[in-house]
Design a protein around this nucleic acid. Structure first.
Lengths: 141, 141
DNA sequence: GAGAGATACTTGATCGCGCAAGCTTTATCC
DNA sequence: GGATAAAGCTTGCGCGATCAAGTATCTCTC
């Protein structure tokens, strides 16, 4: 009776707690080492794996689970740092394509190493097992 | 060579993506049905399971992975809705205890049901298996 | 028991982000 | 082909959350 038996609730709460902590850790590491936030990294990484390394605002928004206006604003500082560049489409004048620059590609490559290293060290340097969500969450509990 | 073999990176990105989506879903459901955000629910729920249903600002902040100032500001609207109440400690005049009111306890109980139901339906109503993080994440992929 | 440092909290400035509204361009339908 | 709807993007407004700084209280040391 004292435990209300709501398994999905418990799962959700611990998942959220773990994620919030992980995001903070990644954010501070990334911004110290590379000068971008984790959210910005997610955007750049999404562009990096897109065909032609370019994506429209709405497609980018959907891919990173952000609103279109959020993407518009997030791209501004990234353009200022020259890792992203906006290019208008000739087929459709409404589209504003965000294109990853060569500097942006390098940024993604370097930042990916940072994220990988941080998370691996969090889980525990030892190769105790294959990387799974469960092991990651356990390390963050 | 095309896949750089960064297992923790992939894990982290998909985890983040899933969580962001889940949080949005819970947020809108909770605010429609109960009038509070998921972040506010997390605060109330933390108080609900605390001894005496009361916690200091800093303890609360640590428990929900928020900054102390974030907690201070988050409590204002909750006090206005009378689900939380601030009580000064007699032992230590610095402490401002956040106390869950009876109305707050009911709020937690009702909101917990909402979260449980939403997540369960996301995973798939059928009792296909026991609730695990993996199944939850798969449903959100 | 007095002063230095730690701790709890709040406030000010700022940022990121969502929603709603508005503008431009494209698609659809008669 | 012209009107109406839809899609893409940006901007105004507001909220939530952070950090830094400030105040009040407590603790520890001598």
């Amino acid at each position: 009776m004292q435990t209300p038996d709501q398994p999905y609730l418990d799962l959700t709460l611990s998942l959220g707690h773990s994620w919030i902590r992980l995001e903070r850790i990644l954010d501070s590491n990334l911004s110290n080492v590379r000068g971008i936030s984790f959210g910005e990294y997610r955007i750049l990484r999404t562009l990096a794996v897109a065909p032609g390394k370019k994506l429209s605002r709405v497609d980018l928004a959907a891919a990173v689970a952000l609103s279109p206006s959020g993407v518009t604003r997030a791209l501004l500082p990234l353009e200022k740092i020259k890792v992203v560049q906006t290019e208008r489409s000739e087929r459709d004048a409404r589209l504003a394509l965000a294109v990853l620059t060569p500097a942006g590609s390098k940024m993604v490559k370097d930042s990916s190493r940072v994220v990988e290293d941080v998370v691996r060290s969090l889980v525990g340097g030892s190769g105790t097992g294959k990387p799974t969500v469960a092991s990651l969450l356990k390390a963050l509990a």
